[in-house]
Simulated assay, not measured.
Amino acid sequence: MGDRQVARDARRAREFEAFVAGAAGRLLHAAMLLTAEAPDASPRARRLLTLALAHTYARWDRLRGEDPYDCARQYLATRFARTTWHRYGAFGRARPDPRSPLAALAPRERLVLVLRFYEGVAEEQTAALLGLPAERVHTICDRATADVLHPARPVAPGAADTGAAPS
């Protein structure tokens, strides 16, 4: 291996390490919001992050002006969507941690909400990334936002049995 190759590999490693130092925390937080896992117990989120960073590192030399964060975020989102669909069928439910602020949402709703509000991805870009019409993304986002801001109240014990309204 020549000196140039060694220098190029060292520069690539330094650049990627700097990227990871700046982006990994935010990407992990996004992954934890997607998986609805608690910070102290987040194996699925950590796996998503590891896969997204590995994918970004493999493409590092070919990014040519593309934003590496955008590359990692796209991979994180599409991998989450694919694995959720594959494992649980049609965006079925994994068992979210009840401490997660997005635990009550379905995976697709979490995905849209995280991309739109936490990551600031435009509605049209979110739609393109997920292969959905923009109107559908808008509807999902509105419904998920309403569910997070105004969660359904649990029925009081005994109220369901008597037909009485909760007080």
Rank of each mutant, 00 (worst) to 15 (best):
C71P: 02
A103I: 05
L63D: 12
Y69W: 15
F91W: 15
R44M: 07
A94Q: 04
L76A: 00
Y57L: 14
A90P: 01
A103G: 04
L102W: 05
A122F: 11
F80G: 10
R44W: 08
P96N: 09
A103M: 03
E66L: 10
L51P: 01
A54P: 00
E119P: 05
T83V: 15
Q74K: 08
R73T: 12
A72D: 10
R62K: 00
D67F: 04
A58E: 14
Y88W: 15
D70R: 11
G92R: 02
R82Y: 14
A45V: 10
H55N: 08
R79V: 06
L63F: 06
L105D: 04
R93F: 09
L102R: 06
A72F: 13
R44I: 00
V114P: 04
A81W: 04
L53F: 10
A81C: 03
Q74I: 00
L102M: 12
T50M: 02
P43W: 07
L51D: 14
A81Q: 08
Y69T: 15
R47F: 08
L34A: 10
R93G: 03
A58K: 04
A77E: 10
L115A: 12
V121I: 12
P107W: 11
E109S: 08
R73W: 14
P96R: 03
A90T: 09
Q74T: 04
R87A: 00
A77G: 05
